[in-house]
Write a protein that binds this DNA or RNA. Structure first.
Lengths: 141, 141
DNA sequence: TTGCACATGAGAATTATTCTCATGTAGGAT
DNA sequence: ATCCTACATGAGAATAATTCTCATGTGCAA
């Protein structure tokens, strides 16, 4: 139940928060902007202030329930933090996002940080390229 | 000479462009925001419109003379593209930026992209952590 | 059931960046 | 050297994304 998730991280259980969480869990797109969340909620009859959406997302992020990404050029997207850590590859033509996890890269990062005298706390890795989806190929021509 | 760099990439040689390039080459900070560049030019008597700074930076980026970075939370910074490719590690406490290059990571990225059916065109990797600079340590306490 | 700390909505405010448009200028052609 | 034209510039307006303000509403512990 979503109420549990909220309680577990010390947030009051409110309607807006529940709706936002549940939208993130059920949406077809895994990566959504605050605007999109706001609009989709509105369309399904759940009118929630845009400021509230931003506030809730910020709190969810602080609580570790969601992560925030800034892909090149695009606007900030939020993603439900489910399952293990992963990084992203984004198609520069159609915007499709795939996820991946690479143990080698993760380990190298730790080594590099240590070598430079840093205690690693986080990282952001995004690859950009053109995907081989036929539909995407055409969209260029 | 900076005029050469501009001509080589097909940009007219103008005073604002020369001043911005030369500031980037001589500044103590390697990573600068558009605002900072604008302000520093102003302070040294070279008053250049902020819009012009943004325009020039965008052109320099398109021409491959500078790269643009979006470190977490901070605003966009620009860096003169000199020497070989590198990634960054940023101190989350004092904001210090160090550069690094890791062949293993670079190679893994290419492999991963290929596996996922992407033709890699670019990537953004930034590590975040706490640095061990004594001055930084104190700033927390 | 009540009180109060915290949450919400609406719109104003802020911040970063881009656009508009009237005017200026680099640099190729003459 | 001079002229012409396409491109560049400055100033401020416009836009976009996000955060803030503040009056009002509500979860939930006592």
């Amino acid at each position: 139940m979503e109420s549990e998730e909220l309680r577990n991280v010390g947030l009051k259980v409110t309607t807006p928060r529940l709706k936002i969480l549940s939208l993130l869990e059920n949406a077809s797109e895994k990566h959504m902007t605050a605007e999109t969340i706001y609009r989709q909620l509105g369309e399904s009859g759940e009118v929630i202030g845009l400021a509230t959406v931003y506030r809730a997302l910020a709190q969810f992020e602080a609580a570790g329930l969601v992560t925030r990404h800034q892909f090149d050029g695009g606007q900030t997207v939020f993603e439900l933090e489910r399952g293990p850590h992963h990084d992203h590859i984004v198609c520069v033509r159609c915007g499709r996002v795939e996820e991946f996890y690479d143990k080698v890269i993760e380990e190298r990062q730790r080594v590099i940080a240590a070598q430079l005298g840093f205690t690693l706390s986080d990282h952001a890795l995004t690859l950009y390229g053109e995907c081989n989806d036929p539909a995407c190929r055409e969209s260029k021509a």
